Simulated assay, not measured.
Amino acid sequence: MDKLTIDHIEKKLLHLPDWEYGDGAIHAEFEFENFKDCFSAMSRIAFECEALNHHPNWSNVYNVLTISLSTHDANGVTEKDFKLARAIENIVEPDE
């Protein structure tokens, strides 16, 4: 999969306002009501990651989930990262 240009990344991010680009990856932070809700979302995201065979760099502190996506084989951001970011958005904010 080909690495996207910064211009292409920025255009795609217009459709994902919770995400931003920096340090060769796209990043987002999501805050939940409590730890249980955050961990539940992480579990649902994990199944999507396995289905796409694409795995994030992420961390969780109490009710906050921080995610960074990049494609290591391409040494940058690819369409694969945006596909996972959209899936994450659908899990984290299904009403939007």
Rank of each mutant, 00 (worst) to 15 (best):
E29G: 01
L16W: 02
G24W: 01
A74W: 08
F39V: 08
V77P: 00
H15V: 02
E96P: 08
H15D: 12
L84C: 04
L13W: 08
E79I: 07
W19K: 02
D7I: 14
S70D: 12
N53S: 03
L65N: 05
E79V: 11
D23Q: 04
A51N: 11
V92F: 08
F32S: 06
V77M: 07
V77T: 02
E96F: 06
A74H: 10
H55P: 04
V77F: 01
D95L: 13
C38D: 06
M1Q: 09
E93G: 04
F47A: 13
K12S: 14
N90D: 15
L4V: 11
A25E: 05
E20F: 01
E79G: 03
G24N: 00
F30E: 02
F35G: 10
F82Q: 07
V64W: 13
Y21R: 00
V92C: 14
W19Y: 00
F39Y: 14
S40E: 11
E96Y: 13
R44S: 13
E50N: 05
C49P: 05
M42E: 05
I88T: 11
G24Y: 00
F39G: 03
S43C: 13
N57C: 06
E50Q: 08
I88A: 06
E31S: 13
I45R: 01
E31R: 12
I45L: 04
K36C: 02
T66L: 12
F39D: 08
C49W: 03
D95W: 11
C38S: 11
I45C: 01
E48N: 07
E10D: 15
D73I: 13
K3M: 08
W58C: 03
A41K: 00
H15W: 06
M42Q: 10
K80R: 05
F35L: 12
I45K: 00
Y62R: 11
V77C: 02
K11D: 15
W19D: 00
I6M: 11
F82C: 09
E79K: 14
G24F: 01
I67T: 03
L14C: 06
D81V: 04
D37Y: 02
I6T: 13
R86G: 15
S40N: 10
K11W: 09
F47E: 15
E48F: 06
A46I: 14
F30I: 06
W19S: 00
S68K: 10
E10P: 08
A46L: 09
D7L: 13
C49G: 06
F47V: 13
F30V: 00
H8V: 15
V64C: 12
V77L: 03
T66R: 12
T66D: 14
S59M: 11
F47C: 10
P56Q: 05
H8P: 04
A85F: 07
F39N: 09
I91D: 12
V77H: 04
E96M: 10
T71W: 07
H8E: 15
K80A: 09
H15M: 09
